[in-house]
Amino acid sequence: MSLLSSLDAFDHAILKAVSEDGRITLKDLSERVGLSKTPCQARLKRLEKLGVIRGYRAILDPIKLGCAHVAFVEIRLKDTRARALNDFNRAVQSHPEIEQCHMIAGSFDYMLKVRTTDIAAYRTFLGETLSTLPHVSHSSTHVSMESVKEDRFYD
């Protein structure tokens, strides 16, 4: 039995509610999902313990914080053996400009979402950082002109 199949309508309602408002009170959560506080809290704790809910955090507005430039970068590595992949994976962790890093099955190895203040800052980051990451042989940049949809996972 998979974890997903073990979740019922109440669990899904709880997940939807906390994904929309991580600061929702237990009282409001229980009212919203139609459970009393005790079983609602037990379900919430169970979802946390199972790792379905990994944590709670504030969603910051990067544009208001001065980081409006978004680029998606295809990365090809010179070497794709396990050690090279691990080296690259570790290296991207230390750069906050890299918001996301996904290993891709296709004509390149990784897709990165990179956020900087502007195109000049991105160019510097590309030349001084991205191109010097372990085993990088080639990159191709796609600049986002507008974000049409950036939502939570659980809707």
Rank of each mutant, 00 (worst) to 15 (best):
L44Y: 10
K64H: 02
V73P: 07
C101M: 10
A71I: 00
D109Y: 01
R32K: 14
V52S: 08
E97Y: 02
L50W: 11
Y110S: 03
V92Q: 09
S139I: 12
T129W: 01
N86I: 08
K27T: 13
A84L: 07
G51H: 05
Q93G: 01
L50Y: 13
I24N: 05
A84V: 07
S131R: 15
A84Q: 04
V33N: 04
T38K: 14
P96D: 03
T129F: 05
S139Q: 05
D109L: 11
A82W: 11
C67F: 12
L65W: 00
P39A: 10
G66S: 06
M103K: 13
A105I: 12
G55I: 09
A42L: 15
Y122W: 11
C101K: 03
T38G: 11
G66R: 00
I24G: 12
P134Y: 09
R83F: 10
A58W: 06
G66E: 01
T132D: 11
I63V: 13
D118S: 12
M111Y: 09
T124E: 13
L130A: 10
T124I: 14
L126P: 01
L29M: 07
L60E: 05
Y110E: 10
R115P: 05
L26R: 12
E97Q: 13
C101Q: 04
V70L: 13
K78G: 11
R123L: 10
I75W: 05
F72R: 06
